[in-house]
Amino acid sequence: MDADPTFPILLSLRVAATALAVVAPAGIALAFVQARRRYPLRSLVDAVVLLPLVLPPSVIGFFLVVLFGRRGPLGRLLEGALGVRVIFTPAAAVIASAVVALPLLVKTAQPAIEAVPLELEAVGRSLGLTPLAIFFRVTLPVAWRGVLAAIVLGFARALGEFGATLMFAGRVSGRTDTMPIAIFDAYQSGDDARAALYVGVLTGLSLVVVIGAAWLGPRAAAP
């Protein structure tokens, strides 16, 4: 008999949530740096961050396998030091989701941070706040809507990740079959009802997320 039909739903939610827990702090910090600092390799960093958005998922999957595979540099390091193998595990699904969520997160959060008046941050500095305190006490309270919208969109993107996950995490039933993978599997084996279930759940979730992001989205900060 087939695996528990709720498994892919719960796995997808867990994978996307874990991916965001990892990538959101890094992505928001990166958005802040890109919005506020001028440094030599800034445009190169911009391009690299954007890359997963334009590359085919199979290319991202290939890179991840090369890096984290049993013979890849990071894969060998993890297996040697911690005895952990990443490829074909739920952790691989988390990494794939995090990589594709990052560009959307940074590119949505960055304009929200750029829109915070520099004068506010300047006053904060003159009042004795360290740069880190400025971020939490000045920038974030003004830009929180846009930053939250970025996290929500990143979550939706992580939830829908398919191509890179397929190559890097595989389709191990009851282990790495997230909803997009489960849809593909069910469809291939002729189980259209099962496929339709996950299609419905994913479509509904994505709709909620997109509406939520639009509601949070760019709106003029109250003076």
Partner: peptide, 9 residues
Amino acid sequence: PAHRRRIGY
């Protein structure tokens, strides 16, 4: 740095 100058702006 600005945050250690104690200059009100």
